[in-house]
Design a binder for these strands. Structure first.
Lengths: 296, 296
DNA sequence: CTGAAAGCGCTTACAG
DNA sequence: CTGAAAGCGCTTACAG
């Protein structure tokens, strides 16, 4: 029937259907920085899962701009969409969670979360704990944490995983603050004193790449002179020189979980919001020196 | 007025407005592979420009699946959107252009184009011409072209720029086919005979990264033993070891041009479709050996 | 179970 | 120039 109608040039009008039924089968997705491969991969996971559930994804890239995020959110509200998946831009006021609640728009946070409400993200604390424990096993004592701002829950979680593991080993945690940027991290590491830390737990892979670069520039080599561990396992991690040991959190899996959590919110508005914390695993390559040690 | 209404809880309903006016102020964007940093950056450029023009971007990632592309396109038609921006998935039948035309949906292609119709993309031919000329200037004679499938216009254009420049220098062009993938390219280059090409013009940066890796694995070094030039200038290009000499085509600028071309199509449906071919420039870093030469 | 009518919230064309 | 009414194409609730 619809087949035949289509042949005659008929096209189903979703906007009319939406107006009458109030269901758009569209989800708004707010990405904090699409040019970051980690978030790009995550976005692909979200879209895949929503597509399977019969939803279409309306994506907007906020480029870490709170203003742009606000505008897109209002736009989603007017559209309207059936739900919003949000990776909050840096500097998002915590009050946003309550505002979204008062709007009555089902929503879930991804990776960067609010204290409460539907959420899907990696186990940040377990990730840096695994990394730190691995370095301790390799015999390191002067282990520093490179990067991270500590103001947001992601940084806080990763710092905690590291700092608590250090404390448990009766060692003093050390924070080397720097921007989440290859160039900045490289600068920081390049200027590190010779008798400084022998191992670095990095906030994420970008920072770790910078560390690799900074070591190289100062004539040192990751894995041999200083152990480096990243966080995320972006695709490039395996291809860097040396290949990066890092904490894998599978962005695509997080994306799928986020879609699930939001859809649960939509279908069960009265139920307690789901919070899915996804496991982190350590991927051992060369930058931590473990393979080098084995070879000797 | 609207301010006051908003305070009372009123939310403008775009779906109603759309139904009456037929204008959605929404553009559908079909991305062939969002996890490729080049396309991610391009997407950000499109969105930025459309946002400035008062349009919202509805993005869908096809992951190079023609089936998914078809479904999203039909969805966009039903939605409806005011126009579609498409980076065709590999294997898209050329007939799609006519079909879109018959649907009456304004559209433009990005990067990968059809023979006719609105389009924005890099000057592929000029890009590889610049790369090849640079290698010739550095004294190379055995220059090969690595990667690219030649079935699509992008590959064809890049191959032509290389092959014609070689022919002009009375040299025989050589094609080393491989998948557009770091691992595949690395394998290919690793197995290259010692008396093989002394320089490689690569289909894109991913392939070039693979070449760098393959050389490293076989104990050779890009820039010193074999010159390597990429295409795209993705963000990582400057940070690889050695830093990659590559053809810059500024994905963000292409994205902005694509938005412009589509909006022109929407506002001037009777006018000839615009085709914007954006300039390519050569960014000289270390992988081509030019800096090494200077230092000696 | 089937079919005609009402109505979603806007914009637009028309009457006053 | 202002204001009330019609209508966009669906879905839904209701009458037959």
């Amino acid at each position: 029937m619809r087949e035949a109608a289509a042949r005659l040039g008929y096209v189903y009008d979703r906007s009319a259907a939406l107006m009458r039924s109030g269901k758009s089968h569209t989800i708004g997705l707010l990405v904090c920085e699409i040019t970051n491969p980690f978030y790009a991969e995550l976005t692909a996971g979200v879209e895949e899962a929503l597509d399977d559930a019969g939803y279409v994804t309306m994506m907007a890239n906020t480029s870490e701009s709170v203003t742009r995020q606000r505008r897109m959110l209002e736009r989603f509200r007017e559209q309207p969409v059936d739900g919003v998946l949000i990776m909050p831009a840096t500097g998002t006021p915590p009050g946003l969670a309550n505002e979204l609640l008062s709007w009555g728009v089902p929503h879930a946070t991804v990776v960067r979360g609010f204290r409460r409400g539907a959420h899907a993200g990696p186990d940040n604390r377990a990730g840096t704990r695994l990394a730190t424990e691995h370095l301790l096993t390799l015999g390191h004592r002067r282990i520093a944490f490179l990067g991270g701002a500590a103001k947001n829950p992601v940084s806080a979680g990763r710092w905690e995983g590291y700092a608590r593991t250090m404390a448990k080993a009766v060692l003093v945690p050390e924070h080397l603050p720097c921007q989440t940027d290859i160039g900045q991290a490289a600068q920081m590491v390049q200027e590190l004193p010779l008798r400084g830390p022998t191992a670095l737990v990095c906030f994420n892979d970008s920072v770790a790449f910078g560390a690799l670069l900074g070591l190289q520039r100062s004539g040192r080599m990751a894995g041999r002179d200083v152990a480096v561990i990243g966080f995320d396992d972006v695709r490039e991690a395996a291809f860097w020189y040396p290949p990066l040991t890092t904490v894998r959190v599978a962005p695509r899996v997080i994306g799928q979980a986020a879609a699930r959590v939001l859809l649960h919110r939509i279908t069960n508005p009265e139920a307690e919001p789901l919070r899915e914390i996804l496991p982190a695993t350590l991927v051992i390559r060369d930058s931590c020196g473990a393979n080098l040690r084995k070879a000797v």
